[in-house]
Amino acid sequence: MLEFTPSYKKICILRLSAIGDVTHVIPVVRAMQKQWPGVEITWVCGKFEYKLLNIIEGINFIIFDKKKGIKAYRELWNALKSDHFDVLLHMQVAARANIASLGIKADIKLGWDKSRSRDFHQLFINHSVARENQQHQVQGFLSFARELGLQLDEPSWEIPVTEKARKFAEQYIDKDKKVLIISACSSHKLRNWSVSKYAELADYAVEHYSMQVILSGGPADIEVEMANEILASMRTSALNLVGKDTLEQLVGLLSKATVVVSPDSGPAHIANAMCVPVIGLYACTWSKRSGPYNSLEYCVDKFETAAKQYLNKSVNDLRWGTKIEKPGVMELIEVDEVCRQLDRVIKHSSDKTSVIKE
């Protein structure tokens, strides 16, 4: 741990992407805001990620638009040329972030330990977090806060639902039904479950629990096409909101869900941050590392099976963070396994409702 000093007044966070990862960083921000009142926080983030993060108060955001190429670095360095930070939290090991850090002046440049580094990350920092074996990503990010002397064990997100987001959600949510939101697509096609299995799950939710099923996702062609195919394959009906909300509105929508079903994706982590149960579908990645933090018990995880079947290895022989993105891996997840987890979530939510009424 760094020698704690109360003089940490200016902190810069460098985490450009992706949605799930920037969501993991928010508890670090909350810890600093609570324990260091008045701390000045600057966050260098991606253009798309800013659409989510801008609802977090008390942060000066600097947008890095990677599509601009070299110009993006020049704009970033020019924006920060008069700033000198006590600490740079260099939370991304990718080459793009490492190069960006060159124009950020800070006394302490705290980054990842060597075992979790790549792209020469260690050359761009002067301190690193402690090495941990098989640590969940949420706890990995919290280790940055602990290294600075902040006291915290578990994450707290406190993501606000704006009035605009609340009104958007209320347009579509049936208040008289339990709500299943299916966010069917990850950012990587091979991490997606099949159309037929999503459709079967949705029908199960409607036929067994009279749930309102909502399909959610971004405007990308793959997400629009998958949503249309799921609807066409269902016996029952669902509300298709794919491509119809912003990230800000998505927060409001997810906050109203009874349960969310998703592969390893940004919306899964946003829902988790909103304290909504998430049934994570994991086979290409391991939920122990990147599953929805508060819903690991609900994940259907076939990563260990995939390691044996596709790599002929035990998970303990794989580098932490290994991805098994091969055709057919996600088909290891069976519909009945996900339905059983849905049963558990519904039972738990009913039990909680009964306790509240009593």
Rank of each mutant, 00 (worst) to 15 (best):
F4Y: 08
I13V: 08
L14G: 02
L14E: 05
R15C: 03
R15E: 12
T23F: 03
H24V: 08
E40G: 07
I41S: 04
V44E: 04
C45T: 15
F48A: 10
G58S: 02
N60T: 15
N60D: 14
F61P: 01
G69V: 01
I70D: 12
I70M: 08
N78M: 14
N78H: 14
K81D: 15
F85E: 11
L88K: 04
L88Y: 03
L89W: 02
Q92A: 08
A94D: 15
A100I: 02
S101V: 07
G103R: 00
K105R: 15
A106H: 01
I108H: 06
D113Y: 09
S117D: 09
F120L: 11
L123K: 13
H127W: 08
E147K: 14
L148C: 13
G149M: 02
G149Y: 02
L150D: 08
Q151T: 15
L152K: 03
D153G: 12
E158T: 07
E158P: 00
V161I: 13
K164S: 14
E170P: 05
E170I: 05
E170R: 10
D174V: 02
K175Q: 09
K175T: 15
K178C: 10
I181N: 10
A184Q: 12
K189A: 09
K189P: 15
W193H: 04
A199G: 06
A199I: 11
L201V: 06
Y204L: 01
Y209L: 01
Q212I: 01
V213T: 02
L215C: 01
S216M: 00
A220G: 13
N228H: 12
M234E: 06
A238S: 06
A238Q: 02
G243W: 01
Q249Y: 01
G252F: 08
G252Q: 03
L254G: 07
L254A: 04
S255C: 03
S255P: 02
K256A: 05
S262C: 06
S262Y: 04
P263M: 04
H269K: 09
M274T: 10
I279C: 07
G280E: 04
L281Y: 09
Y282T: 13
A283P: 06
C284I: 02
R289K: 15
G291C: 07
Y298Q: 04
V300K: 01
D301K: 08
F303N: 13
E304C: 07
K308H: 14
K308M: 14
S314H: 14
N316R: 10
W320P: 15
G321V: 05
T322F: 00
G328F: 00
G328S: 11
G328Q: 03
D343E: 13
K347Y: 05
K347V: 14
H348Q: 13
T353A: 09
I356Q: 10
